[in-house]
């Protein structure tokens, strides 16, 4: 996509993001979830698509964001918005620290072993949270009530998550345009070669994971407040739903591309909402089928499929 059309698309999305919730107030929560999905896909793609490290444990950072916000909001004794801001900050700091620690320990592992290792990380985090009384153990945590009027709450979180998704996208866009972006691709294409060329691969990989953890933690804090309740396994460390969707959306849209994860999140979220509306009772079956179709027919994602078609059309003329 050329630079100019890039700006047009961003402008159109910004307009839709700002006007959408006002025009369709009944869908505000669904729209908010859409932006959450965009953050999920973009942050997963930083490692999975750009760097070739398929993480199944990114949900950990989302969960840390949920819990950090909930604990700060419970214990800080501040008014709602001050506590929320402090909670988001605390979550981001904790998640970045966790990414640095886990990264130093795990980013030396390559390929499938990294994927399996991170899968364990996500499951372990859920179990720890479910057994820890300080964070409510298995019964989870309830978040404070939003102070505004009825209907304001949905709009607030819809716009907050939209802002987060937009900042995350612009940050990715800026970072991928630097040498750092090239270094990530180099690690993906041939890690040993990157080492042999003298790149500082370990700090590069850790920084990428920390950046992804930062945005995930912020999304976690906002999502926990929007949902109003944290269950350790079904919300915060929901590896089987959110954790898998992150991967799917990025693959569906086209991993390693700028727009792929955004597109994947849109298509996935809309399809999933339609399943819930029209196929109630069968929605999980339909979702499973969708996953199979994505992996079998769109292994390169929608962006990859489009690029292939374009290349074929050019070769044909």
């Amino acid at each position: 996509m050329s630079r100019i059309s890039d700006w047009y698309i961003m402008g159109a999305i910004a307009l839709a993001g700002l006007a959408g919730p006002l025009l369709l107030p009944g869908l505000a929560t669904q729209i908010a979830f859409l932006w959450l999905m965009v953050v999920f896909a973009l942050t997963w793609d930083m490692l999975g698509g750009r760097m070739g490290y398929n993480s199944f444990g990114n949900i950990v950072f989302f969960g840390i964001g949920c819990y950090a916000a909930a604990v700060v909001q419970r214990d800080a004794g501040l008014p709602y918005f001050e506590a929320l801001a402090l909670g988001l900050l605390a979550g981001a700091v904790c998640a970045v620290l966790a990414a640095v620690v886990f990264g130093a320990a795990m980013l030396g592992i390559r390929g499938h072993y990294f994927a399996i290792g991170t899968l364990g990380l996500g499951i372990a985090a859920g179990e720890v949270a479910a057994g820890w009384d300080y964070v409510g153990a298995g019964s989870g945590m309830a978040l404070p009530l939003y102070p505004g009027e009825l209907g304001q709450r949905e709009l607030f979180f819809c716009y907050s998550l939209f802002a987060l998704a937009a900042i995350c996208f612009l940050c990715c866009r800026a970072v991928y345009a630097t040498r750092f972006g090239l270094a990530l691709n180099a690690i993906r294409d041939d890690h040993d070669k990157a080492d042999a060329m003298g790149l500082r691969t370990t700090p590069i990989k850790i920084f990428a994971w920390a950046l992804s953890a930062f945005f995930l933690a912020l999304s976690g804090g906002l999502a926990a407040n929007m949902i109003g309740f944290i269950d350790p396994r079904d919300v915060a460390f929901a590896g089987a739903t959110f954790g898998v969707w992150m991967v799917l959306m990025a693959i569906l849209g086209g991993k390693g591309t700028l727009w792929g994860p955004v597109l994947g999140a849109f298509v996935f979220h809309v399809t999933q909402e339609l399943f819930w509306t029209w196929l109630l009772g069968w929605q999980r079956v339909a979702l499973g089928l969708l996953i199979v179709i994505i992996v079998v027919f769109f292994p390169q994602g929608i962006m990859g499929w489009l690029a292939e078609r374009r290349a074929r059309a050019e070769a044909g003329t």
Binding site: R179, F180, L182, A183, N185, A186, R188, D189, D190, K193, A194, M197, G198, L199, R200, P203, I204, F207, G256
Partner: peptide, 22 residues
């Protein structure tokens, strides 16, 4: 070489300054 990058990108990331810190 780095398969999925362009030749110019392959060259750019091989430059001496790419060995620097974050």
């Amino acid at each position: 070489i780095y398969d999925d990058m362009t030749c110019t990108e392959n060259m750019a990331i091989s430059a001496r300054e790419a060995q620097g810190g974050l």
